[in-house]
Amino acid sequence: MERFIRLVGRDLRLAQRHGFDSLLVVVFFVIAVVLFPFGVGPEPNILARIAAGIIWVAALLASMLSLERLLQADFDDGSLELLVLSPVTLEIIVLAKVIAHWLTTGLPLIVAAPLLAVLLNMNAEGFGVLVLALFLGTPTLSLIGAVGAGLILGSRRGGVLLSLLVLPLYIPVLIFGVGAVDAAIGGFAFKAQIMILGGLFLGTLALCPWATAAAIRQALE
């Protein structure tokens, strides 16, 4: 457990020393969302209608863009190999890295999301649910993304490939994330969607570290 916390701390320190790098994800998120009013026009009603979808899609893309950093840097400088050799189970190491990744990318997105929702004129009933759904959804994205990040280690053109592998698997999170917010805005019950998001999170929490560890092992063999 102590090693686990130290591992999370190490990744957080690395992210902090890289400074602006982890902020870039949030900047991308904001810019991607801000593009939409230019694309579909500044009509408040239209923007309010599609706000949840825009924010979720942008969060999805932002989370995906940061995945390459999750394992690639450690793979390149060889520290991943040392981590695999360490006495801690590889699945636990993966979990620690995913938590650090979520703290540096997922959490800032959640903080920025309500602000963007205001910019997009989203109905106030949706705010709380949006944050709640993002809280359940973004760790799921990091977990699924870790599998993709593990699979592309050492491949050619990793980044583009990663999007092809990961985005199809992101779709369920997107569907239920947007569904929950839309239901809340429409005044319907949103408990079911939130519970499915929670189920997706727990399911990926159980399975993805395992698949990622398998991917890392075959990459280092």
């Binding site: 699979l151 592309i152 050619r156 592998l165 991917a215």
Partner: peptide
């Protein structure tokens, strides 16, 4: 795409 993304074919197979 993944199976063809590696220089070493056995890595592509496994990933």
């Amino acid at each position: 795409a993944l199976i063809n993304a590696f220089d070493d074919p056995t890595r592509g197979f496994r990933a």
